[in-house]
C-alpha cells in the first residue's frame, strides 16, 4: 500500500470489517449528536436553526403567546407606531394597522400558514422537478427530454404568477388549492437546474462504469445520479421557498390567496403598502419576518448541502 489515507474522523475506527449494519439502532443517537456538533461549528447554520426553531415554536404556540387575536380591532388605537417611537404604546409592541389590529399578533399568527404553504409547495415542486429533471437529463435528446424541455420553455414564456392567477381564479381560492398550485407550477426551475447537472453527470466515468457493469437505467438514476444532484436541489429549494412566500403575498393582496380571517405574512405586508409613507411599520415588520426566515433557511440549506457531501465529513 502506498500510503494511508489521513482520517481524523472517528467513524473510521468503528468501521470494522465485521457486519454490514455498522450504524445500527445504537449508533443513530451518536450520529445525531455528531451532526449537532457540526451544526454548532457553523455560526450561520446555528443562527438559521435557531430562527427556524423559533418559527416552529411560534407557529405551535401562537394562540398562547400572541397578545391579541389577530383580527381584533382597536378603533381608538389605529395606526399606532411601535412602542419605542413617540406615540407608541407598550400595549402594541410593533404598532397597529389602519383598523387598530396589533401587528405583532398578526405576525405571530401568520407564521403557521406562511411556512406550511411555502414549505409544502417547495416539497411538491422539488419532487416533481427533480424526477422530471433527472429523467430528462439522463435521456437528453430523447423524446421525453424534448417534451419536458418544451414544457419548460412554455412555462418560462408565461409569468408564473399569471398562470397561478388563472388556475386559482378558475378553481376558487383556498389554502389547499394555493399550496398545490404553487407546488405544481414551481417544478420548472428544479427541472432546469437538475437537468443541467445530470447532463454533465451522465458523462462522468462512474456512470459509464455502472453502464458497463450492466446496471439498469432506473437503478443508475437512483443510485448514481440522484444523490449527486442533491446539492443543486437544496440550493434551488431554499430560493424557491422565498419565492413562494412572496407569490403567496401577492396573491393574498389580490384577494386570490389565503382568505381572511386567516392571516399570512404576505397578506399583512400587502395591507401595509398603502401606508408605507405614513405608517411604515405595518409593511416593514412582516417584510422583516419574511427576510429573516428566508435567510435562515438559506443558511441551513448551505449547511445541509455540505453535510450531505461525504467529502466534507472529514471535519468534526
Amino acid at each position: 500500500m502506498t500510503q494511508q489515507p489521513l482520517m481524523e474522523n472517528e467513524t473510521s475506527t468503528k468501521a470494522a470489517p465485521g457486519g454490514p449494519a455498522v450504524s445500527g439502532s445504537g449508533g443513530s443517537a451518536a450520529v445525531v449528536r455528531r451532526r449537532l456538533r457540526t451544526l454548532l461549528q457553523s455560526p450561520a447554520a446555528t443562527i438559521g436553526a435557531l430562527v427556524l426553531l423559533l418559527c416552529v415554536l411560534t407557529a405551535l404556540l401562537a394562540p398562547f403567546i400572541s397578545p391579541y387575536p389577530p383580527g381584533q380591532q382597536h378603533p381608538q388605537d389605529r395606526l399606532l407606531p411601535p412602542f419605542w417611537l413617540e406615540g407608541g404604546s407598550t400595549e402594541f409592541l410593533l404598532g397597529t394597522d389602519n383598523l387598530g389590529r396589533d401587528i405583532l399578533s398578526r405576525i405571530v399568527h401568520g407564521v403557521q400558514v406562511t411556512l406550511l404553504v411555502s414549505g409544502i409547495a417547495v416539497i411538491i415542486s422539488a419532487v416533481l422537478g427533480v424526477t422530471l429533471g433527472v429523467i430528462s437529463g439522463f435521456y437528453a435528446g430523447g423524446w421525453f427530454d424534448t417534451i419536458i424541455q418544451r414544457l419548460v420553455d412554455a412555462n418560462m414564456a408565461i409569468p408564473n404568477i399569471l398562470l397561478i392567477l388563472v388556475i386559482i381564479g378558475s378553481m376558487g381560492p383556498s389554502t389547499v388549492t394555493l399550496t398545490v398550485v404553487l407546488g405544481v407550477t414551481g417544478w420548472v426551475i428544479f427541472a432546469r437546474m437538475v437537468r443541467a447537472d445530470v447532463v454533465s453527470l451522465r458523462e462522468r466515468d462512474f456512470v459509464r462504469a455502472a453502464r458497463s457493469i450492466g446496471t439498469r437505467d432506473p437503478v443508475m438514476m437512483m443510485r448514481h445520479i440522484l444523490p449527486n444532484v442533491m446539492p443543486t436541489t437544496i440550493v434551488v429549494a431554499t430560493l424557491s421557498f422565498g419565492t413562494n412566500i412572496v407569490i403567496e403575498a401577492s396573491l393574498s393582496f389580490l384577494g386570490l390567496g389565503i382568505q381572511p380571517p386567516t392571516v399570512t405574512w404576505g397578506y399583512v405586508l400587502n395591507e401595509g403598502r398603502d401606508y408605507l409613507a405614513t405608517a411604515w411599520w405595518i409593511a416593514t415588520f412582516p417584510g422583516l419576518a419574511i427576510t429573516i426566515t428566508v435567510l435562515a433557511i438559506m443558511f441551513l440549506g448551505d449547511w445541509l448541502r455540505d453535510v450531505l457531501d461525504p467529502r466534507e465529513k472529514k471535519r468534526s
Binding site: R204, D205, F206, R208, A209, S212, I213, G214, R223, H224, P227, N228, D309, P310, R311
Partner: peptide
C-alpha cells in the same frame, strides 16, 4: 456484460463520490 469489464482512466471520476 458480466464477462467484460472496464477500468477507467481517471480514478477520481470513475468512482461515485457518494
Amino acid at each position: 456484460r458480466r464477462d467484460m469489464q472496464m477500468v477507467f482512466q481517471d480514478p477520481f471520476s470513475s468512482l461515485n463520490p457518494r
